[in-house]
Computed example of a mutant assay.
Amino acid sequence: MNVRAVVFDLFNTLTAPVDEVDFRASVRDMGLAAGVNPDAFTRGWFALWRQQLDGTLGTTEAGVRRVCEAMRAEVARARIERAVEVRMEFSRRALRPRGDAVATLRDVRRIGVRTALLSNCTADVPNLWPTSAYAELIDEPLFSCVEGLVKPDPDLYQRACERLGLGPAACIYVGDGDDQELTGADRAGMRAVLIKTPEATAASSLSERGSWSGEAIDSLSEIPGLIRTGSAA
């Protein structure tokens, strides 16, 4: 079947590599901004990570408040707001496109193929999305915290297909392999392709970066050729 859509992962796929040290330091800085013990705040933040990804906690502010409440810390609203802004500052940095991302998205759309996004992310990302470099180039963005589903849940891939108005066999999924997203895409009936990111930092325990035996590409700029020829290197 001809490729009619490309579904992209976001972090470490469309974005430049996210620095794990910077990521964890930013969470600690949130604790400092809130005026609480930064190490305890960091532990609390990651203890609630799944609930942030699936949207259970709602806004970033609600997440900060929940962590502080669990620490039994009374925190002024101004400090909560500052902690939220620290998170937003990190996410703005994390959303920087990798070098060939914007050009590739334009090329894919130019040849008449639709685009979608599936991202496991917290509430700050959809808030920043409208001003990102990708917003006008992705036809159907789906965020886990908005959809209430987290990759590799098959219903999330199915929902992307429904939004695109296509069957999964007409879609290529491209990701760096975190969260078993490639296996999830393959099981959903999509054609899954790994984007190699040797410069990416520590992968999650669910990463497929080192074990994926399916199709793989070295750069996003290979995707238009992949669409035309129907195969990857």
Score class of each variant (00 low, 15 high):
37 N>A: 11
38 P>F: 09
38 P>Q: 12
38 P>R: 08
39 D>Q: 14
39 D>P: 01
39 D>L: 12
40 A>Y: 04
40 A>N: 06
40 A>H: 08
41 F>P: 02
42 T>D: 08
42 T>A: 14
42 T>Q: 11
44 G>H: 01
44 G>D: 06
45 W>H: 04
46 F>A: 05
47 A>Y: 09
47 A>E: 13
47 A>Q: 13
47 A>I: 10
47 A>H: 15
48 L>P: 02
49 W>G: 11
49 W>N: 13
49 W>C: 03
49 W>F: 11
50 R>K: 08
50 R>A: 10
50 R>V: 09
50 R>D: 13
51 Q>W: 07
51 Q>V: 03
52 Q>F: 05
53 L>K: 06
55 G>K: 01
55 G>W: 00
55 G>I: 03
56 T>I: 06
56 T>M: 05
56 T>W: 00
56 T>F: 01
56 T>G: 02
57 L>Y: 00
57 L>C: 04
57 L>H: 00
57 L>I: 14
58 G>N: 05
58 G>Y: 00
58 G>S: 06
59 T>A: 10
59 T>F: 02
59 T>N: 08
59 T>V: 09
60 T>F: 06
60 T>V: 10
61 E>P: 03
61 E>S: 15
61 E>D: 07
62 A>P: 02
62 A>R: 07
63 G>C: 13
63 G>P: 05
64 V>I: 15
64 V>Y: 00
64 V>T: 02
65 R>C: 09
65 R>V: 14
65 R>E: 13
65 R>Q: 07
66 R>H: 14
66 R>V: 10
66 R>N: 13
66 R>E: 11
67 V>T: 04
67 V>L: 06
68 C>D: 06
69 E>K: 11
69 E>T: 11
69 E>H: 11
69 E>Y: 05
69 E>P: 02
70 A>C: 08
70 A>H: 12
70 A>N: 12
70 A>I: 07
71 M>W: 03
71 M>V: 09
71 M>E: 13
73 A>P: 01
73 A>R: 03
74 E>T: 14
74 E>Q: 13
75 V>E: 04
76 A>G: 06
76 A>M: 10
77 R>H: 11
77 R>C: 10
77 R>W: 13
77 R>M: 12
78 A>W: 04
78 A>F: 07
79 R>Y: 04
80 I>L: 15
80 I>E: 03
81 E>S: 14
82 R>E: 15
83 A>R: 00
83 A>I: 02
84 V>K: 00
84 V>E: 02
84 V>T: 06
85 E>F: 04
85 E>L: 09
86 V>Y: 00
86 V>F: 01
86 V>L: 05
87 R>T: 06
87 R>C: 15
87 R>D: 14
87 R>K: 13
87 R>F: 12
88 M>S: 08
88 M>D: 13
88 M>A: 14
89 E>Y: 04
90 F>E: 04
90 F>C: 09
91 S>W: 11
91 S>D: 12
91 S>P: 02
91 S>C: 07
91 S>I: 08
92 R>Q: 11
92 R>H: 10
